[in-house]
């Protein structure tokens, strides 16, 4: 196993009652890659992310991060190792002002290691991060109670929370779903920038056009199984993939 494999998923399986949500999935992600995961609804993409980030315990299989076994570790420890994830349903701390949402990751042991983090200073860092993601610092937006913001902002707030953690691996669960075209157009270059700066990104997405613009590798899931893995164009030409998508997914 080489140094530059950042994440290795080994034969991961998860069953809920009788349902096989994830079935014997293996995956290797190298440092600096931008991997897309696609698949019809209910194919187990979110469950795979939950397994990697510790929110769900696997029935069998292993997850290795930088060579270290992280299977079964609690989510906060995994996050502190540098894996950040967004939630499909954009979860935020909706009773707090938007920028205060970022105080939580900024208080985590991981970020404390990076900087002193004195009181007051954290608010400024939070505003800086939000400003980059389109919450203009001179407007009211970053100071509003998160719960009152429109959906697109919540999704980006979720992303901002991940960025504040200074992750090495970023996992996005359908970040673009429910975002307006203009918001997608503004967020995509940011992701590309983070990627250029060395961040490894795994992105679950239904909006294939956007995904293919940035991803250099795509994994396809169907019924909990991995059915294809490779460069976007090649994968989409494969027969199984087209079959899996036929009738279930309307291409834009």
């Amino acid at each position: 196993m080489t140094e530059d494999v950042i994440l290795e998923v080994r034969r991961l399986t998860k069953t809920f009652g009788g349902i096989m949500a994830v079935c014997d999935v293996s995956l290797e992600v190298r440092r600096g890659e931008f991997v897309g995961i696609i698949g019809p609804n209910g194919s187990g993409k979110t469950t795979l992310i939950n397994l990697i980030t510790g929110f769900v315990k696997p029935t069998s299989g292993k997850v290795l991060y930088k060579g270290q076994d992280i299977t079964g570790k609690p989510p906060y420890e995994i996050a502190c190792l540098g894996i950040a994830r967004t939630f499909q349903m954009a979860r935020t701390l909706h009773k707090l002002p938007a920028f205060k949402n970022l105080i939580v990751p900024l208080c985590s042991p991981r970020v404390r290691k990076f900087r002193g983090g004195k009181y007051g200073e954290r608010d400024d860092i939070a505003i800086d991060i939000l400003d980059d993601l389109g919450f203009e610092r001179d407007s009211f937006v970053p100071y509003k109670i998160a719960g009152t913001l429109p959906h697109g902002y919540l999704k980006r707030l979720d992303l901002a929370r991940c960025i504040a953690l200074r992750p090495e691996l970023l996992i996005l669960d359908e970040l673009f779903s429910g975002m307006a075209m203009s918001e997608v157009a503004a967020t995509l270059p940011m992701l590309e920038k983070f990627h250029r700066e060395g961040l490894t990104i795994i992105m679950v997405e239904h909006r294939l056009r956007e995904l293919f613009r940035v991803a250099n590798r795509v994994m396809v899931m169907n019924f909990g199984q991995k059915i294809a893995d490779g460069p976007p164009q090649k994968v989409m030409e494969m027969e199984e993939v087209q079959k899996a998508y036929l009738g279930t997914e309307v291409e834009e």
């Binding site: 809920f16 009652g17 979110t46 939950n50 929110f55 769900v56 939630f87």
Partner: peptide, 10 residues
């Protein structure tokens, strides 16, 4: 009880 396994989806 089996509800813990089927708990709230993330």
């Amino acid at each position: 009880g089996k509800y813990k396994e089927l708990e709230e989806r993330v």
